[in-house]
């Protein structure tokens, strides 16, 4: 029983990390209707930047989080403005996917060129220590991720509900043409949305770098899980992504222990396929899974 509870705790903490990565993905997914295959590579870039900042400047990764959020926001804005926006009215709806696939491949291999295939562990004091609650242990770094996950999702939720810009973003997602008729500059909305999605990844990178070493393909690992989370939670749904992230965190932690460590991903992907086939709208989706 104690093992089970510990596994649940681990799963929920991991879910917090998935939540931060997934909310950005689900925003881009739900609002721009774009599957960003390069999302994981943005995380990877953020992790290398964290490593650089920590090792070269001697700063704690958590201190690097605010500037990383800013840097990734700018990178996101640039990608949307100069790569994806020109493709907005393309004849074939797939070309935006091609562009993000190309970007993803280019970034992975750029990292391989610059850093090689080695793993880069980011040193950070205190992050790997743990606090004990009776018989249970929680890694401080994971607790921080979990708390940040809740804060990010709550903040984004308030932003979307309470501000003019947030409402305009939701309106654009629900009816693009009608939003234009209200006076919303849809292209600007898309740029801001992609920026926010990338900024979330900036935060995630700073938090995850001290726990998982950076490598060229680290993004692929996380983003595939994030896709599962997004589809499970329902694309475009913030609280869906949060609950989905916690669920997938639990599945990850429990199946690794009870089935086999190297088969936990099989369980997650099998689950993913089942969701796609039988409930493509996810748990909280708005019904756009397979039109």
């Amino acid at each position: 029983m104690e093992t089970f509870v510990q596994l649940v705790i681990n799963g929920l903490m991991l879910g917090g990390l998935f939540a931060i990565i997934s909310v950005g993905l689900t925003l881009i997914f739900g609002i721009i209707r774009l599957v960003n295959f390069a999302h994981g590579e943005l995380l990877m870039v953020g992790m290398y930047l964290t490593w650089l900042g920590t090792v070269k400047l001697g700063l704690h990764p958590y201190v690097l989080a605010p500037p990383l959020v800013l840097v990734l926001f700018v990178i996101g804005v640039l990608i949307q403005r100069f790569i994806l926006q020109p493709l907005l009215d393309a004849r074939d709806a797939h070309v935006q996917i091609f562009a993000t696939v190309g970007l993803s491949t280019a970034l992975i291999n750029l990292a391989l060129l610059v850093f090689g295939a080695d793993l880069y562990a980011t040193p950070a004091s205190g992050v790997r220590e743990s606090i004990t609650l009776g018989p249970f242990r929680i890694l401080i770094g994971q607790l921080v991720m979990f708390v940040c996950g809740i804060v990010v999702v709550a903040a984004l939720h308030l932003f979307m509900e309470r501000t003019y810009l947030g409402r305009a973003i939701r309106a654009t997602a629900q009816h693009r043409a009608a939003a234009q008729l209200m006076g919303v500059d849809v292209k600007r909305i898309y740029i801001v949305t992609f920026g926010i999605g990338a900024a979330c990844v900036g935060l995630a990178a700073a938090l995850v770098a001290p726990i998982y070493p950076a490598s060229p393909t680290v993004g692929t690992y996380f983003v595939l899980t994030a896709f599962v989370v997004v589809v499970l939670g329902g694309m475009g749904s913030l609280h869906g992504a949060f609950i989905g992230a916690l669920l997938i965190g639990l599945v990850d932690s429990l199946s690794a222990f009870y089935i086999a460590p190297d088969l936990k991903e099989v369980v997650i992907f099998a689950l993913f396929i089942l969701i796609l086939l039988f409930r493509p709208t996810g748990l909280f989706g708005l019904g756009r899974g397979s039109e």
Binding site: Y164, A171, A178, L181, M182, L286
Partner: peptide, 26 residues
């Protein structure tokens, strides 16, 4: 110049109040 489009085109998952607020976006 405001167009009230064919087929209503409301924002279905927003409240009526938020729809009206969106109308005053400029």
């Amino acid at each position: 110049i405001t167009l009230i489009p064919e087929g209503r085109q409301l924002f279905p998952f927003m409240t009526v109040r938020d729809n009206l607020r969106m109308g005053a976006y400029t």
